[in-house]
Computed example of a mutant assay.
Amino acid sequence: MMTVGDVDETRNGFDTSKMLTEWETGTVSDLPDGRTQHTFVMEAVDKEIEIAPGVMFPAWTYNGKVPGPALRATEGERRKIVFRNYDSQPHSIHFHGIHSARMDGVPGAGVVNPGEEFVYEFDAKPFGCHFYHCHALPLKRHIHKGLYGLFVVDPDPARHAEHADVARSRLLGTPENAGWQELAMVMNAFDTNFDDENEVYAVNTVAHAYTKRPIRILRDKPVRIYLANAVEFDPINSFHLHGNFFDYFDQGTTLTPTSRTVDLITQCQGQRGILEFSFKDHEPGLYMFHAHQSEFAELGWMSMFEVVEQVA
C-alpha cells in the first residue's frame, strides 16, 4: 500500500519536508501611513515534476513549486503581489480574502497573458487560513495543473483584546508562536492521463512522501496545521488523525474552535482550516494521518508523524 522507490526532489526543485515550514513573507517595507507592506514576486512557469517514483506530470507552477509558496503576513498590513506570466497560457492569481473587484484575478480583472505582468494590491484581511489559485479559463484545468497555494493572515493581537494570547500564538515571530510546531499542508491530486479522474493523491504533491519520511514532532510542543484542499475532480477530501483528537478552526477566521475534540474533518475544494493538537500525553512513536477515503490513502494520501522526546 505504498509507492516503490523514491522521488528525486532535487530535480523537482522543492523539498516536501522543508515545504512544511517554509513561510514566504516577501520583502518588507514601510508605507507613508506607517503601515507595513509585504511585496511578493510570483511567476507562472511550465515545469515537469515527479509526483510519485517514475511518474512525471506536466505542471503549471507558481515559482516552480506545487503547491505554490505559502504566503504569510499580518492582519491590516498591505500586500503587493507582482505577478509575471512566463507560461504559454493566460494565468492569474485569485486570492480568497477581502479586496476590490479589480484585484480579483478573474477574466477582465487581473488575468495575465504570456510575457505580461500584473500587480495585485490589497490589505491583508480577514485573518485566517486562506487559499489562492489561478482563475483563468478553463478553471478546472488551471487549478488541477498546479496553480494554487496557501495564503495565511495572522491575527493582530492589538485588535483582539479578548483573545490576545491566542492571537499572539498565531503571530509569526512572537515568543508565543515559537512555542508551536506549525505545518503548511495542501491536499492535492493529479490526473495523469487527463480523463478528469485522479490517479495520484498526496499532501504537498509527492505521494506517500511523509510515510517514507515521517514528520518529526516534539512530544511536549503543540502542533498547528494550516490545511487546504486543492483536489480537482473529487467533491470532498478529508483529514483523519490516528490515536489523537484535535480542535478545528474552519477557514481559520476565528480564535475559538468551530469544532472541538474531533479526529476527522472534511473539506470541499478550496476549503481550508486550522488544526490544533498535542501529543504531550502520548508515548513516542509513529502516528498515522491520512484521507479517510480509502482510495485516496492507497493512491498516495497517507502520512506519518514521528513523535519524539524533546532533545536536551
Rank of each mutant, 00 (worst) to 15 (best):
M1G: 09
M2R: 15
M2D: 08
M2N: 12
M2V: 12
G5M: 10
D6G: 04
E9V: 15
N12T: 05
M19P: 00
W23Q: 09
T27E: 13
L31C: 10
D33Y: 10
T36I: 14
Q37Y: 00
V41W: 09
M42Q: 07
E48H: 13
I49N: 03
I49V: 13
E50P: 02
P53K: 02
G54I: 03
F57P: 02
F57L: 03
A59Y: 02
W60D: 10
N63L: 02
N63Y: 02
L71D: 00
R72M: 14
A73R: 06
V82L: 10
F83A: 03
Y86D: 11
Y86S: 09
S88H: 10
H91L: 06
H94C: 08
G97W: 00
I98Q: 13
A101T: 06
R102D: 13
V106R: 15
V106P: 00
A109M: 09
V112A: 07
N113F: 04
E116Q: 14
F118K: 07
E121M: 12
E121V: 04
E121F: 02
F122R: 10
K125S: 14
F127K: 11
C129Y: 01
H135L: 06
L137W: 13
P138Y: 11
L139P: 02
H144E: 12
G146W: 01
G146A: 08
L147T: 11
L150G: 03
F151L: 07
F151C: 07
V152A: 05
V152T: 13
D154M: 09
H160G: 07
D165R: 15
R168N: 03
S169M: 09
L172H: 15
L172D: 14
T174Y: 00
A178I: 05
Q181R: 12
Q181V: 09
M185E: 03
N188V: 03
N193Y: 05
F194P: 00
D196E: 12
N198C: 09
V200E: 04
A202Q: 08
V206K: 06
A209S: 11
Y210L: 04
K212W: 01
I215F: 02
I215R: 03
I217F: 04
D220E: 14
K221A: 13
V223M: 09
L227W: 06
L227I: 10
A228P: 01
N229E: 08
D234G: 07
I236L: 13
N237W: 10
N237C: 05
S238F: 05
L241R: 00
F245N: 07
F245Q: 07
F246V: 01
D247E: 06
Y248D: 00
F249H: 08
D250F: 12
G252T: 07
T253Y: 03
T253R: 15
T254M: 05
T256W: 10
T258F: 11
V262C: 05
L264G: 00
T266Q: 12
Q267R: 15
R272Y: 05
S278H: 02
S278I: 08
S278Y: 11
K280L: 06
E283L: 15
M288Q: 14
Q293H: 15
S294L: 14
A297F: 06
L299R: 11
G300P: 03
W301E: 12
W301K: 09
M302Q: 14
M302F: 08
S303H: 08
E306G: 04
V311A: 15
A312T: 08
